[in-house]
Simulated scan of single mutants.
Amino acid sequence: MRSFRRHRLLVSVLLCALTVLAARPTAAPEESGSGTGSGADTSLSAEVARLYEEAAVATRQYEAGREEAEKQRSEAQRAEALLDAQRRHIAALHEDLGRIARAQYRTSGGLPVAAHMILADSPEGLMRGQHAFSQAHLAVNNAITKNQRAEARLAADEARAADQWQALERRNTQLAALKADIEQTLEAASSRLQGEADAAVAAGACRGAVRLDQPETGLSDGEWVAPVETYELSASYGSGGARWSSRHTGQDFAVPIGTPVRAVGAGRVVKVSCGGPFGMEIVLKHAGGYYTQYAHLASLTVDQGEHVSPGQWIGQSGTTGNSTGPHLHFEARVTPETGSAVNPVSWLAARGVSL
């Protein structure tokens, strides 16, 4: 009986537990523009941001090495030119020496110095002639010795410059390989990031902000910057084409996928969206009643309602939505909605930012 009561009590406890679990609500899916990104999302975005910086550093190192190699090459070429000039000068001295020797042979007839002394009109005349010849011979020998030393010195300088140039060429080859490897890895990571962004846009639901280590900008809330640090301007405000229903409403910045996108000024995030022709986009509200839009992104690093500072990374560029290639579409508006855009280039120029 005791064992039966114990089993009945255990069954009652299990039934109560199952009832409680059944009554708990299931986890609701994340709302668009809320929450934070998953660990995998954050890791991939951070990897792309890190690789982007490494690629920029590798490019700067490669360019610096290439310029140094060119400078060393020029120095080696200058040394070779000096060496050629010295060789020509020595050849001329040798020619002069030969001319003097031939003249001496013709005038002396090959007689020894003692015979000249016997046949000379006076010892003083002979001594003067012999002294003049000795001085000329000594001057030529000194010039040849001096120029031989200069030639050896220039040859050593040329060899040293050539060695430095070759060492820089080898280093530059290594830097080029490192740069290519980083860019290849970046391209693969950016492709994965874009794939995740495309999936989010297709689902029409943002995954929430991923949190990246922010750079030190040193900017105050009253300062303004360009939306990307390094770029090429492409489609401009007001341009026409088959891609737009009327006119282009913003300024496009041609940048690779994963490029950090910056808030141009202090403001608040009033819109985060992951669907429609702009793909993944962010709209900020700034002081003075103006708004800026950042579209075709591959990731978001802010959530709706957040306050941002000038230069803060708010996302990463991509090619989501109605986009023909990786770029950032940037707009300046008088309302948060499409159709209220003003020329973003002149708008930024009025705030001290020249594109």
Rank of each mutant, 00 (worst) to 15 (best):
R2P: 13
S3A: 15
H7W: 09
V13A: 15
A17R: 03
P25S: 04
P25Q: 04
G35F: 09
G35E: 04
G37V: 09
L44V: 14
S45H: 11
A46E: 15
E54R: 15
E54P: 13
A55R: 10
A64E: 12
E68H: 07
Q72L: 14
S74R: 14
S74Q: 13
R78F: 07
L83A: 01
L93A: 10
G98P: 06
I100T: 08
R106T: 14
L111V: 11
P112Q: 01
P123G: 01
H131R: 08
A132C: 01
A132V: 07
S134V: 03
Q135E: 08
H137A: 11
L138W: 05
A139Y: 03
K146A: 12
E151I: 14
A156G: 13
D157H: 02
D157N: 02
W165T: 09
W165S: 14
Q166Y: 00
L168P: 06
N172E: 12
D181V: 00
L193S: 07
E196S: 08
E196Q: 09
E196A: 08
A200I: 09
G208Y: 02
A209M: 08
V210E: 10
P215V: 00
G218S: 01
V225R: 05
A226M: 09
P227Q: 07
V228P: 02
L233F: 09
A235G: 05
Y237D: 02
G250T: 05
F253L: 12
F253D: 09
A254I: 10
A254G: 07
V255M: 05
P256Y: 06
G258C: 10
R268I: 11
V270M: 00
C274E: 00
P277N: 08
F278T: 10
G279M: 06
H286C: 08
A287M: 08
A287Q: 14
Q293I: 04
L297Q: 04
L297C: 03
A298L: 04
A298F: 04
G305N: 08
V308K: 06
G315A: 11
S317F: 04
F330L: 10
F330Q: 07
T335A: 09
G339E: 13
S340H: 11
V342H: 07
N343I: 03
N343F: 05
S346D: 10
S346C: 05
L355F: 12
